[in-house]
């Protein structure tokens, strides 16, 4: 039975649906999203998927080329590294280190950034001013330099790198959240809600945050590409993940030794980092375009 309509009802799609409507037709962005989903499932499911043990050395099979070359083996589709470990398994595991940990770092940092940003955005006065200036200071210090300091204090290692990256990302999140909130506070509906008698807390949770989450996601994707690049760069420099950890950057550094004999051991991890970051950026760009279009309509 058809529902009875008593009066004319404007058919409004939800904002999320609208966003998707503008996002999906962008082929590149859509492609990026698909890639991201694949990478994400890889990061989570890797332990059950790898064809070989990523850390198992096999001295009989050193530097086997990928299977599309004449001397390659079918059971090692991407060949082996200089200790006879299966490259494909290592690359798959790398997804959970380089990409998976980057996501965790961004989420953690975003959460803390949200709290601090909200505190700073909702407050006024000298305290807030000092806090903001400190933030500006932190924003200008290069993230790698900050990571170096943290690694120097805590010692090299993947976990310490993650702390360093979280800390390095934090200022931009606080900054972003603060700006987003400041923007919201100017809106008329916020004033209206205030006039209704809402207190600061209610204002924050029922009006401001729901209206800023898209911006947060956008910030998150930008930070994610930074985080992936930073984890890999620190691994490459030998102050992040240590060998034999199958982190992509560390894998490149490890394989540099065999770059002449087995260029694929350097090329493939780099390609994966590139593809990951590209996918993240494609999605980020697509989101931004979609949001802009939605606003314009």
């Amino acid at each position: 039975m058809k529902k009875l309509r008593l009066y004319y009802e404007e058919h409004n799609k939800g904002p999320l649906k609208l966003l998707w409507k503008h996002f999906a037709p962008q082929h590149f962005a859509f492609f990026g999203l698909v890639l991201l989903i694949i990478l994400l499932s890889l990061a989570v499911l890797t332990p059950f998927l790898t064809p070989h043990d990523p850390y198992l050395q096999n001295s009989q099979l050193l530097l086997v080329p990928p299977s599309w070359q004449d001397s390659g083996l079918v059971s090692y589709p991407l060949g082996t590294d200089d200790l006879g470990r299966d490259l494909m398994s290592r690359l798959m595991l790398g997804a959970s280190y380089t990409f998976g940990l980057a996501i965790l770092a961004v989420l953690g940092s975003l959460l803390v950034g949200l709290v601090l940003g909200a505190l700073s955005g909702m407050s006024k006065g000298v305290k807030s001013s000092i806090f903001n200036h400190l933030l500006d200071l932190a924003l200008t210090i290069p993230s790698l330099l900050l990571a170096i300091v943290i690694v120097a204090v805590l010692g090299p290692g993947l976990l310490n790198t993650i702390w360093a990256i979280m800390l390095a990302l934090l200022p931009q999140f606080i900054h972003g959240v603060r700006n987003a909130i400041a923007q919201q506070l100017k809106q008329d509906y916020v004033t209206a809600y205030r006039l209704d008698g809402a207190n600061q807390r209610q204002l924050l949770f029922s009006v401001i945050l729901p209206n800023t989450w898209e911006q947060l996601v956008l910030m998150g994707t930008m930070a994610l590409s930074t985080a992936v690049l930073d984890i890999a760069a620190l691994g490459f420099l030998g102050i992040g993940a240590q060998s034999p950890t199958a982190e992509w950057g560390a894998m490149i550094a490890d394989s540099l030794d065999s770059i002449y004999l087995a260029p694929w051991t350097v090329a493939l991890p780099g390609l994966l980092i590139f593809v990951t970051v590209l996918a993240v950026n494609l999605v980020g760009d697509g989101l931004r375009v979609a949001m802009k279009k939605r606003r314009e309509n």
């Binding site: 001295s59 200089d82 200790l83 060998s243």
Partner: peptide, 12 residues
């Protein structure tokens, strides 16, 4: 020529 790699082998 590569003590770190040697150590990795020995570790296993």
């Amino acid at each position: 020529p590569n003590a770190l790699k040697m150590a990795e082998l020995m570790q296993a």
